[in-house]
Design a protein around this nucleic acid. Structure first.
Lengths: 237, 237
DNA sequence: ACTCCCTTGATATCGGTGTTACGTCAGCGA
DNA sequence: TCGCTGACGTAACACCGATATCAAGGGAGT
């Protein structure tokens, strides 16, 4: 007889689903044991019997959201192409996109501070570690494997948090790629070609003196600023 | 008569000191209004009269810790050496060191997630912005100023969080420098793009590279050229 | 000097949170 | 059928942030 186990799992997944829905719709602050219990149609102590702790619940939610996300992604996007660098890039994009898609969950996981990281976090780190290992095995790394891992992880986490901290409409959509390129350039043995430094450098310098340019109207200066930013944000490759 | 103002400030700084001590010694979870009030020897409502909110208290604590930290640092370490790159590096080191020295405070500030950032955070961002602007004005940046700012900030934040998340005895002490180098090599021009950083000199140099700017229409380029010429012909000085 | 008003101090309280103790009751093996 | 073990449900505990209320007191203005 497995019905007791089945119902137990059903109740468990129901609670996780309720917590996930609450997290998505009402934010991290709304994920309270009582609210979750009420939405899931169970009593509050049931959560503690099944998850032991509120952190346990959050861990289960994180794992659930993450698995449904990776299973929801089209498999082609994240398939191993054979090129370790390409795989790392696609994994990076998936990670950043996941962070931006689930801001509340990210905040919730980051909120526990320096305590033991969630299983979902260590799972993600393990995936990254395997990808870095492939890089190392292919002889593409010019730094320590651990160093490469930490650098990519730091850059990814920092990028996601920076993007989440600013309003959605003024986020730099190319920041993720720029950060990854920066880290890869310092990490990979094969130096990727850095395109055309002088033109953009001159443009950036010019942008700083633009407000002091005489003989122009404010509207003209504003237009030039806007065009400069657009050109500098333009993907060169 | 200023005694009322003085006592008010005394009580205020006493509360901040109590909260800071509590934060250092017992962690972020121990910073509760009641505990702070008891340690400071005041009543709980006093905190709300002086700080309005618990976030206000935390902001005050962050500001206090930060100012005492920067005032405690030997002034020589963080002095402006004249070289914008060196200044940025020393500022980076100071920031990372501050994060590693005050893990609870950092966790507390990061814990509010996507809400309005603390005044201390925006103050730090402003300092960074000024340093990046000096880089741009010196013709050393080859990416957008905003992009450079976001990249440095993301790398710093991510590095600190990564280091804080692992036990102190297995931290990579060179991770910070490696991350900064990675970002800098992606951001800095190898040589100053415009040796002469006066407004007109930069404008002249920019006019020569304007035809190579990507992401602009021919009409926009033509307009910018025309405006540039008009500005350069403008009699100002 | 006196009144008036605003600030302070203190108590009690509200609504809410994570968590747990304990009685009860159903379902199972014997 | 009878115990017994486990889950369920109620209630409660110990906190938390935040406020209402009210007496006491001191400064400002007349």
């Amino acid at each position: 007889m497995v019905t007791t186990q089945d119902t137990r799992d059903d109740v468990r997944s129901g609670i996780v689903a309720a917590a996930t829905q609450l997290l998505r719709e009402k934010g991290a602050n709304a994920v309270t044991t009582r609210a979750v219990a009420q939405v899931a149609g169970v009593q509050a102590p049931t959560i503690y019997r099944l998850f032991g702790d509120k952190d346990g619940l959050i861990d289960a939610v994180a794992e659930h959201v993450m698995t449904t996300y990776v299973s929801g992604k089209s498999a082609a996007t994240d398939r191993a192409t054979g090129d370790p660098v390409d795989d790392l890039r696609s994994g990076w994009r998936t990670h950043v996109e996941f962070g931006l898609t689930n801001p509340e969950l990210y905040a919730l996981l980051a909120a526990r501070g320096s305590r033991a990281p969630s299983p979902a976090t260590v799972a993600g780190l393990d995936v990254l570690r395997r990808r870095v290992r492939r890089l190392a095995a292919a002889g593409l790394l010019r730094v320590d494997e651990q160093r490469a891992l930490l650098m990519i992880h730091s850059a990814g986490n920092g990028t996601i948090l920076t993007l989440l901290a600013m309003p959605e409409d003024q986020r730099d959509p190319a920041l993720g790629e720029a950060m990854l390129d920066a880290v890869l350039t310092s990490i990979l043995a094969t130096a990727p070609a850095t395109p055309d430094t002088t033109t953009s450098a001159v443009a950036v310098t010019f942008a700083t003196v633009l407000p002091d340019l005489p003989g122009l109207t404010d509207a003209e200066r504003a237009l030039m600023t806007e065009w400069l930013h657009r050109s500098l944000a333009h993907p060169t490759r």
